[in-house]
């Protein structure tokens, strides 16, 4: 008899749907009004996009194993958001260049992380934590606490507004779906993806089977940085304002989203679908807690307890005896 098995991304999505339906029964929930329910659901997914994109780079470095993690993601998001904001300054024709700059700046920071981790053998946790401090410090030095700039109208139009009157889906969600497909292709249909899982499972066997572990490691951190940079670009398109703490609140949730999505934090196993589902679940829980109007302290405790329950359901590592 086969044991009933539910893959983590599916489990997370089912959980999200159940939670959402239950939230309708709250005193100020949507009740039986389907229109409100639909717009609430759309809104939650829209908010999840940014966490989801930031979690993409995190997914890559975590799958690559060797305690891979990217704690600089939050500050990179802030940096590229500020760069985009200042550079674009309300002009539509500069948006494409700003997008490229965001990718490039993120990639450079990711590459430095990769160099530290690969060549200087610094554990990723402290290397990226240190970089996070350096980037935050650089932001403070450069903008001296205030920045002047403006988001271009076209960014708001594409990212934050619905595609058209008939289709009330915000552009961000469409971007996310395309992004998700690309991530899936990258992980499942390319040599890079195959090698990534290979080095995540075991670096020695990967080297012996001809994988360039050093190159892969550098590429992974660089790509993760670039994706965080992209996250910053998207995020500023949605918020329309920048602040020094813009990206930091996404940092640990992005790791949590990856874990909730069933990606092993020890590497070698996981999917981006999982991280997407994880991002939706986490955003849903956070926004539910916000609408329930509880004090901050209770909210934090409920969030912590929910997270514990979530990972207890399917985040368990294999037993010692197996």
């Amino acid at each position: 008899m086969r044991r009933f098995h539910l893959s983590p991304p599916v489990a997370a999505l089912i959980l999200a749907v159940i939670l959402f339906i239950l939230s309708g029964l709250l005193p100020n929930g949507f009740g039986s009004n389907l229109d409100i329910a639909r717009s609430q659901a759309t809104n939650i997914v829209r908010l999840a996009v940014f966490l989801g994109v930031i979690a993409a780079g995190q997914t890559l470095v975590i799958i690559s194993g060797f305690e891979g993690i990217d704690l600089s993601a939050g500050s990179v998001v802030t940096l590229t958001a500020i760069l985009t904001y200042v550079y674009v300054n309300g002009q539509d024709d500069k948006v494409l260049a700003a997008l490229l700059i965001s990718f490039a700046v993120g990639a450079i920071i990711g590459l430095i992380n990769g160099i530290g981790v690969t060549f200087l053998k610094i554990s990723p946790f402290v290397m990226t934590l240190g970089m996070s401090g350096v980037v935050t410090g650089a932001i403070i030095v450069v903008n001296h606490g205030n920045v002047s700039g403006k988001v271009a109208p076209i960014m708001t139009r594409i990212i934050a507004r619905p595609i058209s009157q008939a289709i009330p889906i915000p552009g961000a969600i469409v971007i996310w779906v395309i992004f998700g497909v690309l991530m899936w292709l990258l992980l499942e249909r390319t040599t890079f993806g195959k090698n990534l899982f290979a080095i995540g499972v075991n670096r020695v066997t990967a080297t012996l089977s001809g994988v360039n572990v050093t190159g892969m490691n550098l590429a992974t951190y660089t790509l993760a940085g670039a994706l965080a940079g992209f996250g910053g670009f998207l995020l500023v398109g949605n918020t329309g304002v920048v602040l020094i703490q813009l990206g930091q609140p996404y940092l640990f949730p992005s790791i949590a989203a990856v874990a909730v999505g069933g990606t092993l934090l020890s590497g070698g196993k996981g999917s981006y679908w999982g991280s997407m589902a994880g991002a939706i679940v986490l955003t849903l829980i956070t926004s539910l807690l916000t609408t329930m109007q509880m004090p901050d302290s209770v909210r934090r405790m409920v969030l912590g307890a929910t997270l514990l329950v979530l990972i207890s359901i399917y985040g368990r590592q294999r037993g010692l005896r197996q």
Partner: peptide, 22 residues
């Protein structure tokens, strides 16, 4: 329960931090 340390203690950090704030 064999949960992953980093994510478990991240979750309990909310529990403990929230309790302190409470």
């Amino acid at each position: 329960l064999r949960l992953q340390p980093i994510i478990t203690t991240y979750a309990t950090s909310f529990l403990y931090g929230g309790l302190a704030l409470f």
